[in-house]
Amino acid sequence: MHFVIAFTLAIVLMVADHYGQLMGSFRGVLLTTISPIERIATLPKQFYQLTTTDFTNVDTLKLENQRLKTELLLIKAKQQQFSNLQLEVSRLESLLGTAGKINTQSLKIATVTYYSNNPLSQYLTLNKGQLNNVIEQQTVIDSKGIMGQIINTTPTHSRVLLITDPDHQIPVRVQRTGQRGILSGTGHETTQLGFIPKTSLVEIGDLLESSGLGGVFPAGYPVAVITQIENKGGNPYLDVTATPVADLFQSHKVLILSQATPYLNFDEDLDESLNEDATEEPLDVK
C-alpha cells in the first residue's frame, strides 16, 4: 500500500513539474533544505584552498594588482566612449524620428559558490538570492558571453541552468548572416545548433549571439562559436556543434542581468562585491 501511494505521488509530481509551473516554489523549499548539506560538502575543498592559497607569493599578487589596475583604466576609457556613442545614437534616432531605444540592463555581480558538471545536469550556484531581488529567468553572463539563466532561487542563493545542460535551449542567430536557430545543451561542454537548413551559409568559426526571440534572453550577447558542421544524408538540417564562449566552469564572478532599466547600477554592486571578497574564500579556478 505504501509503495502504491509513493508510486502515484511520484508520478503526479513528475507530471506537475514537467507540464506546470506549480512546482517552482516547492523546489525552492527543497533547495533551501538541501542548501546546508551543499555547504557542508564544499568545506573540504574550501579548507584545501585555504591551506594552498595562503602561501601565494606577494610579488605575484602585486603583479596581478598592477595588471587589474591597467585593465580597469582601459575599461573606464572604453566606457566613456560607449556613453558618448549612446548619446550620439539617441540624438540620431530623435533626428530620424524612430522609436528605437538602446536597452540597458541592471547588473548584479554574484560569486559562483559551486557548480555541477554532470551528464545529467549542468548548473552553477550563486551567492545572490531572493533577498538581493534575484528572480527566475534572469540571464547570467560572464566577461565573454551568456552562461545561462536563473531557474531556482532561495533567500540567499540562486541556481543557474547552464547553456550546456541537456534541458536548456536558447534562441540564437549567426552574427555574420543573421540566420536564426535554436541552441541546445548536450550535457557536455558543447552545444548543438538546431534547425539550420542545408542551404544555409554557416561556417566554422561563426559567432552565435542571442536573438532575443521569446523575450527571456536579451538580444545581441555572444553565446557560442561554431566548431563543427556535419552534413548527414537524409537529414534536411545540418548537424552544427558550437562551443560556448563563456568560461562556464572557470568564471568566479558573474553578472546577473535584470529587465531593461534606464540606467546601470553597476558601481553599487561592484563596491558590495569587493567588500564580500575581503571575507570570502575564492573559488578554485581552473
Binding site: 511520484a10 508520478i11 513528475m14 513539474d17 527543497l30 551543499e38 555541477s116 545536469s121 541552468l161
Partner: peptide, 29 residues
Amino acid sequence: THLFSAFLLGLLADTLYQTTLGSHALLFS
C-alpha cells in the same frame, strides 16, 4: 517499510541533480 525515507531522499536527490521532481523519488521507492 522505509518507503517514506526513500521518497523524501529521492526528492532531495532530484533537487541536487536538477532532475524532474519525483523521478529519483520514484526510482528510490
